[in-house]
Amino acid sequence: MDERTLEYIAELSRLALPQEEKAELLAQMQQILDYMELLGAVDTEHAEPLIQAAGLKNVFREDVVQPSYDRERLMANAKKKLDGAYQVPRTVE
């Protein structure tokens, strides 16, 4: 992994990496990824990807209207609100 890849990944992750952390982080990530290379030795040609171990498929429930949680209560954790809506910086000019 090089610094450009790390910056690209950070952008995708919506994280702003402080310059002084980059070198250490790169070294640690590289060390971990090198270790993950171990998996290359496993013959997986005949294995199917296992998404979840329980093997559940198509879990349905009755399509019945249920009361939702109270709007005020759900919004109580937001730092900035305006007229009952979340407030964010301007997104369109």
Binding site: T5, L12, L25, Q28
Partner: peptide, 19 residues
């Protein structure tokens, strides 16, 4: 918000996972 709110190990795992 994410950079200031998450600690080092959490950020490292998010980056690894995104990669």
């Amino acid at each position: 918000s994410r950079t200031e709110g998450f600690g080092k190990e959490v950020r490292r795992r998010i980056l690894l996972g995104t990669f």
